[in-house]
Amino acid sequence: MMKRSAIAFSAITATMATAGVVQATTLEDVKAKGFVQCGVSQGLPGFSNFDDKGNWTGVDVDVCRAVAAAVFGDATKVKYTPLSAKERFTALQSGEIDVLSRNTTWTQTRDTALGLNFTGVNYYDGQGFMVRKDLGVKSALELSGAAVCTNTGTTTELNLADYFRANSMDYKVVAFEKADEVVAAYDAGRCDVYTTDQSGLYAQRIKLKEPDAHMVLPEVISKEPLGPVTRHGDDEWFDIVKWTLNCMLNSEEMGVTSANVGDMAGSDNPGIKRLLGSEGDAGKNLGLDPGWCEAIVTQVGNYGESFAANLGPETPLKIERGLNALWTQGGIQYAPPIR
């Protein structure tokens, strides 16, 4: 009798020890420490960039701020970790950051073997080429034999190899670890071509000595859907980040902006009521306050506002909405409904 209970007891302690390995959920962790730890780039204007006033700005940064607004009702409760392309996944996998929002391309390998979950697409991008205008090149198909500068550890390196192989062209790749060195080497004439995502080309062109002496070639050689990432094994947190982005998209679609969100709260439209939490259980389903989406729109703005402020024609980057317009306006940004 004694012996049997001793065995039972040790079995229970063993189970408890195993259970103890499972960590608290990310949401609990985030609430306990009081801020969202967000992985961003080391400086890419328009996406995540440290501005001259000492603030992080950009559409990727806005995702981080929106997550904080949804969780805490306060968009300022974010701490940023600038990461190189090489470090970003390890930082997320190891739990150093809670969410990675760093112009990261959604690919099958990353979504599966790397143990990550892509929560959506906040920018539809494609890889392009930039050359000096005085080279007289009009198409990427004229680039055979060129020296190409790019970053290590990105899909860019692989797309580049695929494109040149598919078109039987020669090339020499010069791959740097940091974007700043790529720009400096390209500017110093080490390469004929600079390749990265087209949005990145426009962003980095501002940093060149004579931005007007360079042009982006028309070819887009790859699909680069960029989006926020969370790690495997925590579906609750995955849902929160996913619906944060959907909240921003749905708000734009319904015409809810940071300026009119106060008036919209009194709207009779049931869709807007569900969005802003006066009807339905959207907040409760996510484990958040009913006003989660209202806080996002009030403090960060909807998707269109974020795009216009960071990338749009009014900014130095002058990027058109293009594919990133809503589906109702000829683009492919399409968020599932909140209901």
């Binding site: 390998t109 290590t152 791959a175």
Partner: peptide, 11 residues
């Protein structure tokens, strides 16, 4: 430890 690590993710 750069490109291969990033492509495979097997740090």
């Amino acid at each position: 430890a750069g490109t291969v690590l990033n492509q495979t993710g097997q740090a």
